[in-house]
Amino acid sequence: MRSAIVFDLDGTLIDSARDITVAFQQACVNAGHAAPEEEHVRALIGRPLREMFHTFLPDADMDALIAAYRAYYDENCTVYTRFYPGVLETLTILKGRGYSLAVATTKYPRVARLVSEKLGLTPYLDHIQGTEGFAHKPEPDVIFAALETLQAPGLWMVGDTTADVLAGKAAGLKTYAVTWGTHSKDILETVHPDVIADSLDALLDLCP
């Protein structure tokens, strides 16, 4: 089997920021708190929910907030979410070339699979790995879990945040940072990915 290419999900393959933000704001309101500004929520996307809520409401009931978020998000997770340009075409080409393709995301496994199914992403991938019961990125655990399931050596980690890049490096993969997600090019440069790009075209050149 050829090497594996691992992708982050939110901010890398799919533009899901608005759905995540709306669900986050709604959970705050449902718990009797003011909704944080959209831009402030967006800046935290990719971190675990508990960390996100703690940033705004450190003294609130985190379990209740997370439950409210998940209840709303499960029903409304793809209202605004769309694929970034070229994503499905790139996955199709890479799969046709024999690469194993996986998602490694901070989302819970069940939620990651739900979103992927609703968007029609699942057939393009060999595995969808969420984070549950082990450390989140920038620790490499979720990448190792994906590669273990694939039974394939890892080649590239593709993501939109410094946590993705650091996790990929820690897992021994080359790192490909995209500029259309949560972190800007300037921020991504601080962790020195192998590639920073504003499209996936270079990935195809690097994976013949």
Rank of each mutant, 00 (worst) to 15 (best):
A67M: 08
D8E: 07
V111I: 15
P138C: 09
V22C: 04
G181W: 05
K118W: 06
P123R: 08
I14S: 06
A170K: 12
G11P: 02
A104K: 00
R47I: 07
A202F: 02
I93H: 06
G120D: 01
T190G: 02
A68R: 15
L65F: 05
T12N: 04
L125S: 07
F83A: 11
D126R: 05
H40M: 11
R47E: 14
H54W: 07
I196A: 05
D126T: 12
Y69D: 06
T81S: 15
E139H: 15
V142S: 02
R113Q: 10
T175E: 08
Y72G: 05
D61F: 13
R50G: 09
L121R: 02
R70I: 13
D160Y: 02
T12L: 01
G159H: 09
I93V: 15
E37A: 15
N76M: 05
T162A: 11
T162W: 04
V79F: 02
S184E: 10
K174E: 14
L206T: 12
Q129L: 08
A152G: 06
A64R: 09
P48G: 13
C28R: 00
P208N: 04
T92H: 11
E89S: 14
I128C: 06
I66D: 13
L57F: 10
S199E: 06
K169I: 08
D194W: 05
C77L: 07
M62K: 03
Y124C: 10
A163N: 15
A202M: 12
D15S: 12
D19H: 04
H136L: 00
Y73T: 06
T12A: 03
A23W: 03
A68C: 03
L147N: 12
K169L: 06
V195P: 01
P109S: 11
A177I: 04
G181N: 06
I45L: 11
T81Y: 04
Y69I: 01
M157G: 11
S16T: 01
H183I: 05
R2Y: 07
T90I: 04
L9Q: 03
R50E: 15
T78C: 14
T90L: 05
V195H: 06
A35P: 01
G181D: 07
G172A: 10
A104G: 09
A112Y: 05
F56H: 09
I143D: 04
Q129W: 06
